[in-house]
């Protein structure tokens, strides 16, 4: 019966694992709901600031902000937003794949790349892969606050303003629904003006005190809000992906237990049959 005992301990250990994955699944589900609410809460600001920016693009201020001006590209900045923790399926790897594909393309065009990494998974990954990392941020938690991002975004914005980079891109996961998260790479700088024909009338704001400081402040906040939105969305993606991954793990553990239980039962049955036949054989011999 030694085989049977081993199987029994194996089943017990898988049951323990299953309990853990089940608990993680439920924790992720509740965190996901909160993360989705947070994601929704950031939307009004982003929409409002987007409106103001598109107004600005069509108004005719005497000052042209560098963020709105396209120039020849020699060096590209890339912000990559990953999770802090693993066990969330292929979420990070899928994101890194598109980031690396874009980096290869830039490399082929002789463009140099500056990396800004948010989240410890991307820190670990791109450290091993190599790359010019200029700023990082990690351990933002489940409820990231914009204060923690200001510094790392400023590094890239300063680089853009000083002409060290000529384009800024961001890679993060889009929350489509609970089952689907889509990695996305988009351009932040220079800002691509939204073409809205209806707005193309000649009017301008009154700027207080002057158009330059107002636009500077506005542009910085705009980019920050886009990055912040990416971070918040990525948290929602992380929880959703973890929930799905843990559900799959729990199901797999269940089917593994069923299989082992069957093997255990067979082994037990075989042992009993053998014992009976031995007794019967013994009795016949007497």
């Amino acid at each position: 019966m030694s085989g049977a005992k081993e199987i029994r301990t194996k089943i017990a250990s898988i049951k323990n694992t299953q309990k853990i994955t089940k608990a993680m699944e439920m924790v992720a589900a509740s965190k996901m709901r909160k993360a989705q609410d947070r994601m929704r809460a950031t939307r009004p600001y982003a929409e409002k600031i987007q409106n103001v920016i598109s107004h600005l693009a069509h108004a005719h201020p005497e000052y042209h902000h560098p963020f709105l001006v396209k120039r020849e590209t020699r060096r590209v900045g890339l912000i990559i937003i990953s999770t802090d923790r693993g066990l969330c399926g292929g979420l990070n790897i899928n994101l890194f794949k598109i980031a690396i594909a874009a980096m290869k393309e830039w490399d082929a065009n002789n463009l140099e790349i500056d990396l800004n990494l948010i989240g410890s998974k991307s820190n670990a990954f791109f450290k091993r892969l190599g790359g010019n990392v200029v700023s990082t941020a990690s351990h933002l938690g489940d409820a990231p606050s914009i204060i923690e991002l200001i510094g790392t975004v400023k590094v890239m914005l300063d680089a853009y303003e000083e002409g060290r980079i000529d384009e800024l891109h961001i890679a993060h996961n889009l929350f489509v629904n609970t089952m689907t998260q889509q990695p996305e790479l988009k351009q932040l700088l220079p800002v691509l003006g939204a073409d809205d024909e209806a707005l193309k009338t000649h009017w301008d704001y009154i700027y207080e005190p002057d158009s330059k400081p107002v636009m500077d402040a506005l542009m910085i906040r705009y980019i920050e809000s886009l990055v912040y939105q990416g971070v918040v969305e990525n948290v929602a993606c992380e929880q959703a992906a973890r929930m799905v991954a843990m559900k799959a793990a729990t199901d797999n553990a269940g089917s593994l237990i069923d299989e082992l239980q069957l093997i255990y039962n067979k082994a037990r049955q075989a042992a009993i049959t053998q014992e009976i036949s031995e007794i019967v054989g013994g009795a016949a011999a007497v």
Binding site: K127, V133, I147, I150, G151, T152
Partner: peptide, 24 residues
């Protein structure tokens, strides 16, 4: 939501850079 001032922002940017250097 945060108190914004040029020097505070600057300090945070420096911190982010230092983190990157430390990482490497």
């Amino acid at each position: 939501t945060a108190i914004r001032a040029a020097d505070i922002d600057e300090a945070q940017a420096l911190e982010a850079k230092e983190r990157a250097e430390k990482l490497l």
